[in-house]
Computed example of a mutant assay.
Amino acid sequence: MSGATDSTGEDDGSEPDPAESDTDIDASADTEISTADTMRERADESRLKLWLLLKANRLHVTGVLAVAVFVTFVAVGSGVDGFVATLQSGDTKGALFSTMLGAIITGTTLVVTISQLVISQENGPLGDQHRRMSNTMDFRDYVGDMYDEPVPVDPSAFLREHVNAVQRRAKALRDAVAGSDDDALRTEVDEFTDSVTGNADAVRDQLDGATFGTFDVLFAALNFNYAWKIFQVERIGSDHEAAIDDEIEGRLTDLRTTLTMFGPAREHVKTLYFQWALVDLSQYILYVSVPALVVTGSLLSFVGSGPIPGTTLGVENVLWVVGAGFTASLVPFLLLVVYIARIAVVAKRTLAIGPLILRGSQR
């Protein structure tokens, strides 16, 4: 956990007591109220890496990768002896473009299969649709008791209102313990409330104006570290059981319930986003596959049988033509890579629902 620190010192040659060491570590972890809240801080990874994998526009990333492939192809072809001579062979170009032609058709078929899987989840008999509707309305009715207003229908507003409810109940807990004789309880609840408030303010700002269909809504939800907060509520209730009266117990229960409900709310938004993103991916790949097929087929027909003479800007024309055709044929694959990369990263970071820590950087 980024909030926890490890102390190092000189090795005096003595063997530490494992039981004592484990106890010290557990105690230190349990009393660390504040922690890193944003996904970048919890992941302990570079801002640039997470921006490229998550925040950056997928189409822009695809374009950058395509340019990188083209430039690399031309640069390697210009710098490697014998590359141009080999590429001038009709057999080489023919084998390259015929292979890419088959890959495009196979990839497009795969995308159609993915679309069918996504759409199949929305289809079903009347009974299944009724259960889906009932489950949705039951959840809305349940969380509606926590809000000061009707449950919003916009995903960003819905998550924002839930974060508001968490903050309100954290402040209610602090008010409830204000008169307690347990100084440690008051101190821990104050620090915990400040942590919740700071995290809630940041997430609320990120959600403000965010539109579902973009990644902004889900990214903001991932920055609300609700799992650690659930653990802290449980730990506070256990460590200060003797000083907790009925009012404080009720406030702790209310806060824990609100935090717990953020888990399925976030997972629902994540599931909807995954479906939305996969449908977008399918559409984009279908859109770019047709031009890629035309380009690849044309090059296979017109330039695959003989050499391409001449140079432009000091570079052999065969490198420009074949590099452009090769890059165009890769665009559907690059789209698949950048979309699946984001989905895979999010899925890996949200495998556990509730207070379970899977990443070593947070332990």
Results as ranks from 00 to 15, higher is better:
113 T>Q: 14
218 L>G: 01
97 F>Q: 06
119 I>H: 10
165 A>K: 15
114 I>C: 02
125 P>T: 06
161 E>F: 06
135 N>P: 03
143 V>L: 14
168 R>Y: 12
133 M>G: 08
102 G>C: 07
114 I>E: 04
195 S>E: 02
210 A>F: 05
121 Q>R: 15
137 M>W: 14
158 F>T: 00
194 D>E: 07
136 T>A: 09
136 T>Y: 13
107 G>V: 09
182 D>T: 08
229 K>W: 09
178 A>K: 15
142 Y>L: 08
128 D>E: 13
186 R>P: 01
133 M>C: 00
156 S>M: 09
104 I>K: 06
180 S>A: 08
155 P>Y: 08
133 M>P: 00
146 M>A: 10
125 P>V: 08
197 T>K: 13
175 D>I: 07
218 L>V: 13
133 M>K: 15
145 D>I: 12
228 W>G: 11
120 S>W: 12
208 D>K: 15
130 H>S: 03
157 A>V: 07
106 T>C: 03
128 D>K: 15
160 R>Y: 02
154 D>G: 01
206 Q>N: 03
229 K>M: 13
126 L>H: 13
202 A>R: 14
144 G>L: 10
195 S>W: 13
152 P>A: 05
160 R>Q: 07
216 D>M: 05
197 T>G: 04
110 L>N: 05
189 V>Y: 04
216 D>A: 10
151 V>Q: 05
195 S>T: 06
161 E>N: 02
220 A>D: 00
138 D>W: 12
136 T>R: 15
122 E>H: 14
202 A>E: 06
96 L>D: 05
102 G>S: 13
108 T>Q: 11
191 E>R: 14
139 F>A: 10
216 D>R: 12
139 F>S: 08
100 M>S: 07
135 N>R: 15
117 L>F: 14
155 P>T: 09
110 L>F: 14
116 Q>P: 01
114 I>A: 08
116 Q>Y: 12
149 E>Y: 08
106 T>W: 13
99 T>K: 15
207 L>R: 03
231 F>G: 07
127 G>N: 08
140 R>L: 07
217 V>I: 08
221 A>L: 10
185 L>T: 02
104 I>S: 03
170 A>L: 11
155 P>H: 09
196 V>D: 03
148 D>F: 11
180 S>W: 07
189 V>S: 03
231 F>P: 00
176 A>M: 04
230 I>R: 15
209 G>S: 04
103 A>M: 14
188 E>G: 01
149 E>W: 04
135 N>Y: 12
154 D>E: 10
106 T>G: 09
159 L>V: 09
174 R>N: 09
167 Q>P: 01
197 T>D: 10
170 A>G: 11
210 A>D: 00
225 N>Q: 12
145 D>Q: 12
156 S>G: 04
136 T>V: 10
192 F>K: 03
167 Q>D: 11
136 T>I: 11
143 V>C: 02
216 D>N: 05
163 V>F: 14
169 R>G: 00
179 G>L: 08
193 T>C: 01
151 V>L: 04
154 D>N: 13
183 D>I: 11
199 N>Q: 05
152 P>Q: 08
202 A>L: 04
